[in-house]
């Protein structure tokens, strides 16, 4: 029982991070970005490249782990570089594609374009990195027993898994503070609510759009690195998480940061509990059943506001 909760929270943390980016871009850019999953994959792979580069530059060869984790200081550096590069990729995509379509197209045009961009990004990634799985580290971690086996089945987690939870909490709290305590955050919330009024009030809406891409893609990259830290890095990593990301964002109430976090954790827990109950192949189906059940009771999602 406790183990299922812990596993669900770890998976849910990765989903939450990606879903927060998705809900931000949806509320400010006003379209569902199917490319969000690919930002997650690119983030994971760009961190692989940044890690290799850091190891080569420092002549370290292999990472000396920072106990009790499985990785050395090079991985956090690579994650920051990856977040910056993924944000740059998102900005380039916006400049080349979405900005033009925002001026001339409808929301559905943007959605379809994002679907096309996602396909292009995934194939480009496979071309550059191949299809074999990658790992940040091959260090084997011993899970720490936190709760004895005779208490609700016991609980064992690795330090890396606990780090995933910690990084997610820190990222979400940081984002919350940005949105509520800074001018950029208030401008983002104002733009999400009423772009025309935001312009009249002096908000550079195009600047806010760029900031949203940077934050959304940056969070996706962090989610990708966290997913890679506790699992394999594969070209399909983000695509496989795309439906859970959307489920989390909708479940929480599209546009709500805390809703996306709650939605991600619920989807993660639903997936985790479905494995012993129905089998691993029904993980996603179970998550969507939970989504449907909650939306039937609360159509706006958990934290969604009345239109």
């Amino acid at each position: 029982m406790l183990q299922l909760i812990a596993d669900g929270l770890v998976v849910g943390s990765v989903i939450s991070l990606g879903a927060v980016g998705l809900t931000l871009t949806y509320s400010i850019l006003r379209f569902a970005n199917f490319g969000q999953g690919e930002f997650l994959t690119w983030g994971a792979y760009l961190a692989v490249s940044a890690l290799s580069l850091t190891l080569a530059v420092t002549g370290a060869g292999v990472m000396a782990p920072i106990e009790p984790f499985s990785f050395g200081w090079q991985l956090p550096v690579a994650m920051v570089a990856s977040a910056a590069l993924t944000a740059a990729l998102a900005l380039a995509l916006d400049w080349a594609l979405f900005a033009r379509l925002r001026r001339t197209g409808s929301a559905i045009t943007l959605v379809i374009a994002s679907f096309g961009a996602a396909l292009a990004l995934r194939n480009l990634l496979q071309f550059l990195y191949g299809t074999l799985p990658e790992y940040y580290t091959r260090e084997i971690q011993i899970a720490i027993r936190l709760v004895p086996r005779d208490t609700l089945g016991g609980l064992r987690v690795t330090p890396d898994q606990m780090l995933v939870l910690g990084v997610t909490a820190a990222a979400v709290i940081g984002l919350h503070l940005l949105l509520t305590r800074t001018t950029l955050g208030r401008a983002m919330r104002a733009t999400a609510q009423n772009p025309a009024l935001a312009r009249v009030a002096g908000v550079d809406v195009e600047g806010v759009v760029r900031a949203t891409w940077v934050i959304g893609a940056g969070l996706a990259a962090v989610a990708g690195v966290m997913a890679g830290l506790v699992g394999q890095i594969r070209p399909g990593l983000g695509f496989e998480l795309l439906l859970p990301l959307f489920a989390a964002a909708i479940l929480g109430g599209i546009g709500s940061v805390w809703g996306a976090v709650a939605g991600g954790l619920i989807v993660g827990l639903a997936e985790s509990f479905s494995v012993p109950l129905f089998g691993a192949e029904y993980r996603l189906a179970t998550a969507f059943l939970v989504l449907i059940a909650i939306l039937l009771l609360r159509p706006r999602g958990l934290f969604g506001e009345k239109a």
């Binding site: 001018t183 208030r186 401008a187 919330r189 104002a190 609510q193 009423n194 009024l197 935001a198 009030a201 002096g202 908000v203 506001e305």
Partner: peptide, 16 residues
């Protein structure tokens, strides 16, 4: 901005 508090409405405008 209905979702921003009265104070936040003014803070945003002042900061810009």
């Amino acid at each position: 901005f209905a979702n921003l508090s009265v104070l936040e409405n003014l803070q945003l405008a002042a900061a810009l």
